[in-house]
């Protein structure tokens, strides 16, 4: 297998400009980056460096002003909004800093949500959700509502929701940012084990302790890659 074919994510000359009134804010400037299949990449950088914007572009939540974002063989800039939504459902699992669980749904129902976008029937959805929650060590919390779970448990439900569809790519935006050290470590260990099982993970973080768990770290500053950490 060639080096190029092992790249799951290819970012080519990507720029992203926001407009605030007449002012133009260049968040990403001609950025190039590749992420190999099975890699656990940490994106670091100061606030406003563009790391979350880059994560959003990779996840199809936003569109680049110019350049290409290619995931496997899909050029995201060629997909319309409906296709992009379907692509996200099929290929991406998101883990958010504040978990973003639906407060009126149980842990199991939260995990089942992305499965509503698949062909699985109700029984299969329930079984898949139970397997995912078991994988994150929460099989005893199936019927708990988010408000009755600790922060670490809520984030693990968030991870279960992200992996339940077996996505191509796991995107984590500050997954330990709202957790204490112990819970954060548990979440990072979980992400590491997912990588060991073949998942490709891209994680935005401020925390060097978190990035130390990644297989590679890249730093962004003012919309450009500044350094690449050792594997």
């Amino acid at each position: 297998m060639s080096a190029e074919s092992s790249d799951l994510v290819r970012i080519e000359h990507v720029t992203k400009t926001f407009h605030r009134g007449s002012e133009e804010i260049h968040v990403l400037s001609g950025l190039d980056l590749t992420v190999a299949r099975g890699e656990f990449l940490a994106l670091m950088g100061p606030s406003g460096s563009g790391k979350s914007t880059l994560l959003n572009l990779i996840g199809g939540l936003d569109r680049a002003t110019s350049g290409s974002v290619i995931i496997e063989n899909d050029r995201l800039d060629e997909l319309d909004d409906r296709q992009l939504a379907a692509w996200r459902a099929r290929h991406v699992g998101f883990v958010f800093q504040f978990y973003n669980l639906m407060p009126v749904l149980t842990a199991q129902k939260n995990v089942e949500l992305p499965l509503l976008l698949t062909h699985l029937n109700r029984r299969e959805r329930r079984e898949h959700a139970e397997i995912a929650l078991n994988a994150v060590g929460l099989s005893h919390r199936l019927n708990h509502f988010p408000r009755t779970l600790s922060g670490g448990e809520q984030q693990r439900v968030g991870i279960a929701r992200a992996i339940v569809t077996d996505p191509t790519l796991l995107l984590c935006d500050e997954p330990t940012g709202d957790l204490d050290r112990k819970s954060g470590d548990e979440v990072l260990s979980l992400l590491q084990s997912l990588q060991e099982n073949g998942k490709t993970i891209i994680m935005v973080t401020h925390d060097p302790h978190a990035s130390a768990r990644a297989s590679r770290t890249v730093h962004l500053d003012k919309g450009q890659l500044s350094t690449t950490g050792p594997e």
Partner: peptide, 13 residues
């Protein structure tokens, strides 16, 4: 807003 955006992020049309 967060719930709706989350749903959309998960791929809900």
């Amino acid at each position: 807003t967060r719930e709706i955006a989350t749903l959309r992020a998960l791929g809900f049309p």
